[in-house]
Amino acid sequence: MSLGIDIKFVNVGSMQLVNHGIPYEIINNMVGVSKRFFEMPYSEREIMYSRLYLSGQAIPCSYNQRTDGVFCWRDFLKLVCQPLPDVLPHCPSSPNDFRTLAVSYAKEVKFLFLMLVDAILESLGLMNKRNVTQKDDDKDEDEDKEEEGEILKEFEDGSQLMILNCYPPCPQPDLTLGMPPHSDYGFLTLLLQDEVKGLQIQHQKNWVTVEPIPGSFVVNVGDHLEIFSNGRYKSVLHRVLVNSMNYRISVASLHSLPFKSTIQPCPKLISQTNPRRYMDTNFSSFLEFLKSGDSTKKNFLESRKLTS
C-alpha cells in the first residue's frame, strides 16, 4: 500500500503509522484532554457517564465481568462519533474544551481511516488505479467506478466509536490486566497511546510489546475486515498490561460499516478456489454474543467461521 505514510509493521494484522498528516497539536490536545477528564473526581464523571448512557451516546463495557477470568484494571469512556458533527452536543461538558478537541480529533482520524480503506480495497483488487487507453473499455470503467463509489460511500457513512482509556497504577500488576486478550469487532482500529508501554500484540503465540512512538497510530485489523476480505486480512489478538508506577492513557477509534449493515465476505473475493469462509454477521449478533458467553478470546470471530 502506498499512501505517503511511513508504516512500521508490528505483525500481519497490526502496524504503526507515522507522518500520517494529522497535526501533532490535535493529537497532543486529545491525549491532554483525556488525562484531564480522568483526573476529575469520579463523582463528577459518574454524572456524565449516566447522561451519556441515557442519551445513547455512550456504550457500556465490551466485556462480561461475570464471566471474564480477570477483571479489567481501567477506567474508560466510549462515545459514538457518527454522524459528525452531530455528536458534538453529546460529548462530556467537562473539561470545557473536551467537545471541541474531541470532535476535531475524530474528524481527522476518520479521514485517515478512509485513506487506509482506499488502500486496502486496492490491495484486495476492489479498487482499480486505471490507465485505460481503449475506448471500448469506457462503459465497463464507468460501471466499475460507480460500484467502487458505492463501496466507499458505505465506509464514509460508517460507524465510529471513540474509546478513552485510563489505566491507573496497580499495586499488584501481575494479578490483573488492563484489558484481556481480544480482537476488535470492527474493520480497523486506530489507536493513539501516550509514552507509557502497555499494549501487547500476539505474534506466533508470543506476546510482543508495541513500543510507543510519539504522535503515531497503532492500526489493528478487526474482525469485520477479516470477514470482508474472506480471510485475506487477519484480525489481531491484543491485550493491555498495567504497571505499578504510571498512569497510561490511550484513545482508540474503532471504524466499520454502519451499525445496521450486514458484514459478509465481499462477493468479488469468493470463487471456487477461494470459497466463502465466514457467515454473515451484524452488530446485534455481536452484542448478543457478549451477553451470552466468554468474550475474552477471539471467540466471536471463530463463531462466524464456516471452515477451519
Rank of each mutant, 00 (worst) to 15 (best):
F155L: 08
K234V: 13
K153P: 01
I27Q: 11
V103K: 10
K153T: 06
N220L: 02
S308L: 10
I5E: 04
Y185G: 00
I213S: 06
L77D: 04
K139M: 05
Y167V: 01
D138G: 02
M162L: 15
F113V: 02
P275V: 08
M179T: 14
Q272R: 11
L290Q: 15
S229Q: 12
S43K: 12
P41T: 03
W73F: 02
L306A: 00
T189Q: 00
S308W: 14
S94E: 08
P168Y: 08
L112A: 05
H203I: 01
S256A: 12
K268W: 07
L112N: 04
K78P: 00
L161E: 02
Q200E: 15
I270V: 14
F286N: 08
L241D: 11
D144L: 14
P180E: 07
Q65L: 09
F286G: 07
S285Y: 10
L257N: 05
V103P: 02
L161Y: 12
R36I: 04
A102K: 09
F76W: 14
S261T: 09
T189D: 03
Q264N: 08
L190R: 06
N230G: 04
M179W: 00
N246F: 09
D184C: 00
D184L: 01
Y247L: 12
R45N: 08
S62E: 09
Q16F: 00
P92W: 08
L237E: 08
S256H: 01
D75L: 06
V70K: 11
D194A: 11
R304G: 03
C266N: 15
M48L: 01
P169R: 12
G178T: 13
N274D: 13
G149K: 15
S104I: 01
S14A: 15
E147G: 01
F111E: 05
G231V: 02
A102Q: 10
S285T: 15
R130I: 07
T176M: 02
K268M: 09
I227N: 02
C91M: 15
V218I: 13
N29M: 07
S253K: 03
N299H: 09
P85E: 07
V109D: 00
H90Y: 15
D97K: 07
G215F: 08
D6A: 13
T296I: 01
E44A: 13
